[in-house]
Simulated assay, not measured.
Amino acid sequence: MAASSSTTGNLLPFQPFSLPASNQRTLGEPHAPGTVIPLALQLSPERAAGHDATSSLDAVVTTIKQLADRGDLDAALRRHGTLLFRGLPIQKADDFSRFAHAFGYKPHEIIGIVVDRPLLAKNVAPANESALTTTIGSHNESPQVPHAPAYIFFYAHRVPEKGGETPIGSSLEIFNKVNQEVPEFIQELAEKGVKQTTIYKPNAQYKGGSTLKQAFGKLINDEDSDEVKRQKIEDQIRRYNRPAEYTSWQWNEDGGITLEHILPAIRTQPGTGIPGFFTSLAAQYAQKKRTPDAERLRTVRDTTYGDGSAIPERYLDVLLRVTEETRVLHKWQRGDVLVYDNRIAQHGREPWEGKQEDRQVFASLWDGELPGAYGTAAFAQVVPALPDIQV
Rank of each mutant, 00 (worst) to 15 (best):
Y105C: 12
T291G: 08
E295D: 15
V178Q: 03
L365R: 09
I37M: 14
K122L: 14
K192I: 12
G375M: 08
F85R: 01
A40C: 07
R79Y: 00
A363V: 13
Q205N: 08
L19Y: 09
R301L: 12
S171L: 03
Q214K: 14
P264F: 05
T323N: 00
Q250T: 10
F175G: 06
G193W: 05
S309C: 06
P89K: 13
Q269L: 12
L88A: 06
D74Q: 15
I199S: 13
R158V: 04
E191M: 11
Y340D: 05
I110Y: 07
Y206P: 00
A49V: 04
D367L: 09
D336N: 11
I174S: 03
L73Q: 04
I233R: 06
N252H: 07
E245Q: 15
N23D: 06
A127Q: 09
A2I: 10
T35Q: 01
L365T: 07
R238G: 00
A380E: 00
P30A: 10
P387N: 03
T54E: 01
K65H: 13
L263N: 05
A377Q: 15
V182I: 10
S364V: 08
V114H: 06
A373H: 06
N140A: 14
G354P: 11
Q356G: 04
E181F: 09
S142M: 15
Q205E: 04
D341V: 07
F216E: 11
P143K: 11
A125G: 06
G28K: 03
D224F: 11
L386P: 08
L370C: 11
A127G: 09
A345N: 02
G34Y: 02
E223A: 15
P202A: 05
I37H: 02
N203D: 13
A377L: 09
A215K: 07
E350N: 14
Q269D: 01
G104P: 09
P167H: 05
F216S: 11
E184V: 13
S170Y: 03
T166Q: 01
L57P: 11
G9A: 09
R239H: 02
R78T: 04
K355A: 13
P292M: 12
P275V: 04
L39F: 01
L67Y: 04
G104C: 08
I311R: 00
L386C: 07
P270F: 00
I233N: 02
W366E: 02
N221K: 15
G112R: 08
R98T: 04
L12M: 06
V339L: 15
K106N: 13
S5Y: 08
Q287P: 00
R239G: 06
R47T: 13
D52T: 05
L57V: 07
A53Y: 00
E353T: 14
Q196V: 13
E325C: 02
F216G: 10
G368A: 14
V228A: 15
E253K: 14
I136F: 00
N342W: 09
K331N: 10
D388F: 01
T82P: 03
G163P: 11
R98G: 10
A32C: 08
L19H: 05
I220F: 01
V383S: 10
R78A: 14
S5H: 10
G306S: 04
I111D: 04
D302A: 08
E313D: 15
M1T: 11
A294R: 13
R78C: 11
L370F: 07
